[in-house]
Nucleic acid binder design. Structure first.
Lengths: 369, 369
DNA sequence: ACATCGCTTGAATCGGGTG
DNA sequence: GCACCCGATTCAAGCGATG
């Protein structure tokens, strides 16, 4: 695997590699403020017999009575607190995190995220189209898992590719409930004995949606519980850099092989729809300067109820009101605000045309240079 | 309102009343171990800042009530701890609790439930069929809320009406994600000024499912955050006893009126529990087993264009096709699916009759037993 | 009576660039 | 850091008015 590094101060970031070790120690050894996104699928809990370790790596005994149950929650909370703190330190100021869990552990993770100052943006329900039934008929079919998406802090300017997700959802904005099948068939990795290589392999479709939604090409994505590397494989396909941490050699081996067999999509395919907000700003006055509108020319409101005159400085004058296209529109409508670009129309050849059309002309000229 | 009481030791339980007061104090004044189910919809601690406007500039009527304001997570946690402890004391040993919340508060509630020894049975996602969109396009549409269902302790023999829920779900076991519309239209209670009486009124369909799933007729259901009394109204319809606690007089008044206008065998409730979707699934083969149709008998499609023969195992055989009544119908019509019950007809006394009539006969026999 | 259109509304942690 | 102001942004339902 090609090892790319990014330098941040004195230390370098090992990109597109799987690091062997305890995720807390490894994260604490990496440079702070260097990662764009973290995706974490930690052990789901503790009624789990065995295999739970304290932050100091000592092993927790399997327990089943109520008192020890409380004790095991305490230990799980310590573990959660430690790895979330290490994760938060790694994030850039505008970075974000995803965690996934079930009712066994997700409430404790969510509370700790809030306690540490992460700012929850959404909780997302992964609704499984093909869950395992409840065989004993004693409860509801456990047909979902919960993800939490949170920015590093309240003020973070997090990445959210709104238009791309809207496009993924047939043109209506993406909701907080995602229907996706569980990982089965060819996608499910097997070990040499033909058994499933990992008990909780996540489907690529889930990571695809997460990464398209909240990262851009070239971003650094870290997964502290890498397992068989779904995060890394999807990151590679999508042209993101990944860092995986995994302490089980068997998983690392499967993941290495998987990722080396994965290819990146074409650059063109990685482009996603973007919002208008990302397009260059155009001042209304430019339309006048360029002669696209004449001073003194009249504009009509979309609803036909109002009109105003263009002035040489790119402001409008209407009845009892002067100001920008936005201000005059807002005043005439009695609204708190108004997008003048979509509110006003001008006349050409007897037809009324939105002034936004002129802005688009200017933008397309700008794109050529 | 008729006041029924149940005596438990020295103290009596005030049934089917709305108690004025702080829910923690009131719960602590009631006899321990006396309640079958608690449904709790506490303040969510939304932490809203400025105003929000729709793209058409109208203002969103947000939850800005004093009862939803908390100074910090710490204060909210103290509140949660106190009311959950009071609730747990009230529950019978085999009692259970439902809580509902959003990502603002549900993680803290879930963690505290576990800390206090409640045993989580399922987390349930209420997927809203008609949520409010995200107007700014900055996040995913917040299209769900989360409920947690937990027994008083791990050893509790909780109530779960598995078959009733299966029947409600077209004969397949109920999942942990429930699609239900939010409370609008005539169901939404208004105050004297014609405004919504409560900012967060829950739909009756949600409480209907909760109470059918986890209580039996005659059970005592307590709601410590009664609001406008959805829990009480549905409990009354379904023949359960309720206890409501609510400290806002305006809400109590609306709830009193609502519940006094509610009848036990409300038509609406009956329609829900006996709707066609809820009726027991009948295998076509049963019609053959019972001699209502003979193997070898011919069936005709509704449009008269196709026919097929009944086989002894309850499948059909037509030209070039064998399979279920649905599969054969779909094949002959070149359709992706087909409801065989309404597609096929048989002949009696020269008349063609839909086979669904036979299914109805079986169902009415089943209802007698 | 029936279809269509327009208006209203719902537990919401809902900007960002420039000066 | 703050103030100012540009300007981007919505889905499903119910209900009443209209044709």
């Amino acid at each position: 695997m090609t090892i790319k590094t990014k330098t941040k101060g004195a230390s370098a970031l090992p990109l597109n590699t799987i690091i062997d070790g305890d995720c807390i120690e490894v994260m604490n050894s990496l440079p702070a403020g260097s990662v764009d996104l973290i995706f974490a699928d930690p052990p789901y809990n503790l009624q789990l017999k065995g295999d739970l370790h304290r932050p100091d790596n000592s092993k927790v005994d399997a327990v089943d009575d109520a008192w020890d149950q409380f004790d095991s929650f305490k230990v799980y909370d310590q573990f959660t607190k430690a790895w979330l703190a290490a994760a938060r330190r790694l994030l850039k100021p505008n970075g974000a995190i995803w965690v996934i869990g079930s009712y066994h552990n997700v409430f404790r993770m969510g509370a700790e995220l809030q306690n540490q100052g992460f700012w929850i943006l959404n909780d997302v329900v992964w609704r499984k189209s093909n869950p395992m039934p409840n065989f004993r008929g004693k409860r509801l079919t456990n047909a979902h898992e919960t993800l939490i998406w949170a920015s590093k802090e309240e003020a973070s300017k997090y990445t959210f590719n709104y238009e791309a997700l809207k496009a993924l959802n047939e043109g209506v904005q993406m909701r907080s409930d995602w229907v996706l099948p569980i990982c089965t068939g060819h996608e499910r990795l097997k070990n040499d004995e033909g058994e499933k290589a990992h008990p909780t392999q996540k489907p690529q479709s889930l990571l695809h949606r997460v990464l398209v939604a909240t990262t851009n090409p070239g971003d650094v994505v870290l997964d502290p519980f890498f397992g068989t590397g779904t995060t890394g494989a999807v990151a590679k396909m999508l042209g993101r850099d990944f860092i995986g941490i995994e302490r089980e050699e068997a998983y690392r081996k499967v993941a290495e092989k998987r990722i080396s067999n994965t290819r990146k999509f074409d650059n063109e395919a990685l482009q996603v729809s973007t919002s208008k907000r990302a397009e260059p700003r155009v001042a209304f006055g430019v339309l006048v300067e360029r002669g696209m509108l004449r001073p003194g020319e009249e504009l009509w409101s979309m609803n036909g109820r109002h009109k105003a005159k263009v002035r040489a400085d790119g402001t409008l004058i209407g009845d009892d009101i002067k100001g920008s296209i936005h201000q005059v529109g807002a005043f005439l409508e009695g609204a708190p605000s108004c997008n003048g670009w979509t509110y006003w129309q001008f006349k050409r050849d007897g037809q009324k045309v939105p002034i936004d059309l002129l802005r688009q002309q200017i933008r397309s000229e700008m794109a050529k240079h």
